[in-house]
Design a protein around this nucleic acid. Sequence first.
DNA 1: CTGTTAGCGCATTCAT
DNA 2: ATGAATGCGCTAACAG
Lengths: 337, 337
Amino acid sequence: MGASIYDVAKRAGVSISTVSRILNSSANVREDKVKAVREAMEYLKYEPNQFARGLVKQKTNLVGIYLPTAGGSVFDSQYNMELMKGIEGVLARRGYGMVILSSLTDSGKNPVYVEYIRQKRIDGLILGSVADGGEMESLRKLLRESSFPTVYIGKRIHTKGLNVYARFEEYHMEMIRLLRKNGHRNIALFISPGHKHYLSALLNRCRQELPEITLYPVFTRRGENRSLCTEDSIKTVLDKSCTALISPSTEEALAITGELSRLDLKVPEDVSVITVEHKKGAAALIPPGISAMYVPAGPMGTAAASLLVTALEKTGQEELSREFFPCYISRNSVKAI
Amino acid sequence: MGASIYDVAKRAGVSISTVSRILNSSANVREDKVKAVREAMEYLKYEPNQFARGLVKQKTNLVGIYLPTAGGSVFDSQYNMELMKGIEGVLARRGYGMVILSSLTDSGKNPVYVEYIRQKRIDGLILGSVADGGEMESLRKLLRESSFPTVYIGKRIHTKGLNVYARFEEYHMEMIRLLRKNGHRNIALFISPGHKHYLSALLNRCRQELPEITLYPVFTRRGENRSLCTEDSIKTVLDKSCTALISPSTEEALAITGELSRLDLKVPEDVSVITVEHKKGAAALIPPGISAMYVPAGPMGTAAASLLVTALEKTGQEELSREFFPCYISRNSVKAI
DNA sequence: CTGTTAGCGCATTCAT
DNA sequence: ATGAATGCGCTAACAG
């Protein structure tokens, strides 16, 4: 069993309050006592018990990360990994631990983070975009009602609270415009389950702004048989005689280009490809070098964590929302026709 | 502020012990009281404060995951991601939270997990293979001295304690043998920084068992400019006139094959490639379909977490160590010469 | 079956 | 500047 503050006090010949004061540097203590206490702590390998401390201060120094991924693991997408990397950096530096809240077990009932918040197991929460509309509603309600420090990564859902986002619709339109400029008219739009609810808005907007373009949505599935699923998808593309396609991630792009080459279709000669990439340069590795819209997930994670930590330490909540602007990186996968 | 057990007790007209009993189902309570208490809990949205509970039971229901990655983020390698996926599955199901311990901030001083253990912030620890020899030594000492529930993923380091592993040396020898059977003699061995300390043993063994083989180690670097680093590496391969190469991961394999094709070298016509893959089928997506040694990181994570949870719940520690056997999956990247 | 009570380890008044 | 005492919310004897 570890040493407690009593053991330290006894060994240093002082009272526990003095030890506590030194621990928190909450008051001045005579130099010699400080020294004695430090030695005692050293000797006993004393570390303050976080339960006891938390019970008094109501602070865990833990931040929850909840990145819902429809039916899959958080660790399945590079987007999430980049987010986490960004988050990890600032949390580690600022002395917070990160606890990964798995969406694996919540079905029907409340998502795990509700429990974690109520049980006071975390000081703050970083929330990835929820996929489904109903969930979205309840989340919005939760955020409005509780004042629990939360930063939401994704399309802004209410004006109160912390928020980090990139405009899905905007940068998709940009990709489409780009293909249009290159003469493409029939475009297959691969879209992941988590983004389904953006689709209709995007389709509408495209129909209005770019009436000459026809968009063919193709849904991708997560999980093991990614390649299998893609095979069917590619058939759809061919049937609609699309000359270009947009992929939602580099993982998907790799599967897609693989399938294309298996069907003896060349990129970009037979079909142009643009992908979204969340890690800078990731799509460059996919032959022949896939042009990409870079959505800076890492920096977004960093921003999210920074916002949260700032809010936690109540140093004034200057910044409430931060937008990120994806940028297009041209490589070798788009051909003018 | 949330409701406490007192509030619930008052509202239900019982004592706090009764509430506690119901909470922990630690004794029988009359039906009507149970009902009253449940209603009160519902009404007050009561959730037991984990600090107070932990203070008594010394249990956090949190498991620490420490996957050291020399100078990089945990989230940078697919190996780690697969491990985490495996771990996530069982921890979520068994009601444990996972806190990611970042190795980002520990330099010089104790690694973070030491602090987490001493502060009793976690109940158990899953430890990835440490890279460096010195660290290894201190770790071994730590594990021997403390009886903190820990499962170590990687080469067995002491007979006490929980352990999950695959034999790095073995499966690398297997890959080499396979290339040898296909007529290859000069082989480039790409090796990641985390595995450097395995190298000399492997070289020795190869020299003994397979004297006709010459192995050329090439060190890979983590981080952003992966492709840059690979370019140099490939030159090394050519200089030594290697006819085959072994890649340590699918990420690396993607970069390598990309670089090869940029140099107008074809796989497998000009150079044969085998990679280690940690996610089943991952290397199949890399043209032309890279043959791979599948090291089942996901299942290994699952096993590690299971071992740990079992140990935590003291249901007898039947299994102390579990070995995994990688298997070779032949695809299109190896040619006989 | 149920209520009373003594800690768990610490931060924080309140005296001194 | 420092010690004694109180309470954070809960569990686990203990007593009825």
